[in-house]
């Protein structure tokens, strides 16, 4: 493929939305209230909407008549580029919110920067998605405060969730070799440049939520290189079920 780097770069963004969307999709009908159920479904819907634009673009680069669904659903696990954070399970609502918030702050920064990409398609998708992602961040940030500063039980659960996910943040700011080439060409975004503002925004929000900022110096990463957690295979089993069972059909 001529644009191999760009193709992989798009997957690096799109796969995060796809896999997080799958996780949120599992929750549909099981939320703690009808309002949160609807809101989380809505976020999943936004994320899938964004992935379709990215995968269509990726499919056009891949050529050979590939479709958005081929790109989204017919890769082996090692070729998915999402960070480990988004594939972690919906252990409880506190985990759902922590995972979402920690991703949303990053996602919003990424979209904000991507608007200036010299790749017109990516810039346009980002411009369209930015408002949605801003809403996601407000939703998850508000819930972070409600749970952190709610009851003793919710505070404890929220703190445990933040502690649990903290080591997964570092990977958001890693750049792969192909990312670096994309940054150099003005297509990609240098995520390292907003690492500091990310931590400062998250720290402020955690404090406002009366939560303790973890001091865990360790990190968990690998997704960007296609080395995923044990959860990933199960997510793909569901995602790919129909496409793998009935190859080459139209639905």
């Amino acid at each position: 493929m001529k644009n191999q780097d760009l193709y992989i770069y798009i997957l690096g963004i799109a796969d995060n939305s796809l896999i997080l969307g799958q996780r949120l999709g599992e929750l549909c009908g099981h939320g703690p209230s009808l309002e949160t159920d609807i809101a989380l479904t809505n976020i999943a819907l936004d994320l899938f909407g964004q992935t379709r634009s990215y995968y269509r673009y990726a499919a056009s680069l891949a050529g050979e008549g590939k479709t958005e669904d081929d790109v989204a659903m017919l890769r082996i696990e090692r070729d998915y580029r999402n960070v480990l954070l988004v594939e972690q399970p919906n252990t409880h609502f506190g985990h759902v919110i922590a995972r979402q918030y920690l991703f949303d702050v990053f996602h919003f920064q990424l979209m904000t920067a991507l608007v200036d990409s010299n790749d017109e398609t990516l810039a346009a998708v980002a411009a369209k998605g930015i408002k949605e992602v801003g809403y996601h961040k407000r939703f998850s940030g508000d819930w972070l405060k409600r749970l952190g500063d709610g009851t003793g039980e919710s505070h404890e659960k929220m703190q445990e969730a933040i502690d649990h996910f903290w080591p997964y943040i570092a990977e958001l700011f890693d750049t792969t070799e192909s990312d670096e080439r994309m940054i150099e060409s003005g297509v990609g975004v240098d995520v390292a440049t907003f690492r500091e503002s990310y931590y400062s925004e998250v720290t402020d929000q955690l404090k406002e939520a009366t939560l303790t900022v973890p001091e865990n110096p360790y990190s968990k990463k690998g997704g960007k290189q296609g080395v995923h957690s044990e959860h990933m295979g199960y997510i793909l089993t569901e995602l790919q079920y129909m496409q793998r069972t009935y190859p080459n059909l139209t639905w």
């Binding site: 479904t41 819907l45 659903m73 995602l239």
Partner: peptide, 22 residues
């Protein structure tokens, strides 16, 4: 939702289930 055969069907199904919640 997690098993819908295409992204288009997945999004439509999510939207539908969301309407039901509404």
């Amino acid at each position: 939702i997690t098993r819908a055969p295409s992204l288009r069907r997945k999004a439509a199904l999510l939207a539908k289930v969301q309407d039901e919640g509404g």
